[in-house]
């Protein structure tokens, strides 16, 4: 198997927890993994990205080549479009629809959504709404991981185990809430896929 994922968002939106969860699952499954993070200015509201590569074979580059990503997983709609050059023709764009507006010139939402809808393979869900329903608002990043999970060749049980390992230091309730978020995200994508068939 091979999954090349570009994670996208704005500083503080929790894309590194998504990476850590997949990373945990990959290590448990004895898969190879490379995850290039962008630190630095992230604290101050800049855009952040992480290249996450999981494979059953050894991985050469820490960076995903342009045109080769299987998934863009974005927790912010405009940010999902920033990395389009990386997405392969058959790849999936999976994004949250709630904008993070910390700049005066944020584009019109309708235009952003229209661009997302133009992509052949796309999933756009309101992760915050789902997170509030099944967990807490803070879990919307994990909702997005769930939404992308049908396109990642790692079983749900392994991702859930990953969440458990990452959040067990906090509390059982936090673990459960994140697992709920993960499942709800996946369900949302499954509904969308079913409606398109």
């Amino acid at each position: 198997m091979k999954s090349d994922i570009v994670l996208a968002g704005v500083g503080g939106q929790g894309i590194l927890s998504i990476a850590a969860t997949i990373g945990m699952a990959a290590v448990d499954k004895n898969l190879h993994l490379k995850q290039a993070e962008v630190h630095g200015m992230s604290q101050r509201g800049g855009d952040v990205q992480s290249h996450l590569r999981v494979s059953s074979k050894p991985i050469a580059s820490d960076l995903i080549p342009r045109g080769k990503a299987d998934i863009i997983l974005s927790v912010e709609p405009m940010e999902s479009l920033r990395y389009l050059p990386y997405l392969s023709k058959k790849g999936w764009l999976v994004t949250n629809t709630t904008p993070f507006v910390n700049i005066p010139n944020y584009p019109e939402m309708e235009e952003v959504m229209a661009k997302i809808a133009e992509q052949t393979n796309h999933i756009a869900i309101d992760a915050e709404k789902i997170a509030v329903e099944v967990a807490t608002k803070r879990s919307s990043n994990i909702v997005m991981l769930g939404a992308a999970s049908p396109f990642i060749d790692i079983e749900m049980s392994a991702l859930e185990e990953g969440l458990r390992k990452i959040f067990e230091r906090k509390s059982d309730a936090v673990v459960e809430s994140n697992i709920n978020a993960l499942r709800a995200g996946r369900a949302a994508t499954e509904v969308i896929l079913a409606s398109r068939n």
Binding site: M41, G67, R82, L84, E108
Partner: peptide, 17 residues
């Protein structure tokens, strides 16, 4: 190599602040 789609014009920068 075949790149993905170009970055749409509407995408603007988020300079650190």
């Amino acid at each position: 190599f075949e790149e993905g789609a170009p970055v749409p014009d509407l995408v603007v920068g988020r300079p650190p602040a």
